[in-house]
Amino acid sequence: MNIETDDFAVSIEGDRSRLVGVLRLATPAAYKKIFDPLTDALTANDAFTVDIVEVKFMNSSGITALSRLVLAARQQDKPLTILGTEAVAWQKKTITSLKRLHKKLTVELS
């Protein structure tokens, strides 16, 4: 599954997904079209990985949407890995806080 717009791209292959670009959509509802397929892919696999290394910016509605994916992994009791980078301010500062939501969440910052 692939979504591509002028601002961002999302790809899902099996148990891995990759988000790229700038995610600053207006509402949590606008994020549904991106995150519903991610949640479906999580449900279809025993574990799931989301690569956000190349997401330069994500607004708080996006962080809410990403948190919902973490809560879905918690509900399904599945390991979830978020791959990020220390080079991007919002990832370095905020993403590790999501570990409090789910014991099986791994955040790897390169």
């Binding site: 708080s60 809560l71 939501l101």
Partner: peptide
């Protein structure tokens, strides 16, 4: 931060306050 995320998961409202929380907590 955690309680607002869990609250948001059950509500469709756009008022999460998460932006304000992260500004203070992380920046």
């Amino acid at each position: 931060f955690v309680s607002q995320i869990e609250h948001n998961a059950e509500s469709a409202q756009g008022e999460s306050g998460l932006g304000i929380i992260t500004m203070v907590k992380d920046y």
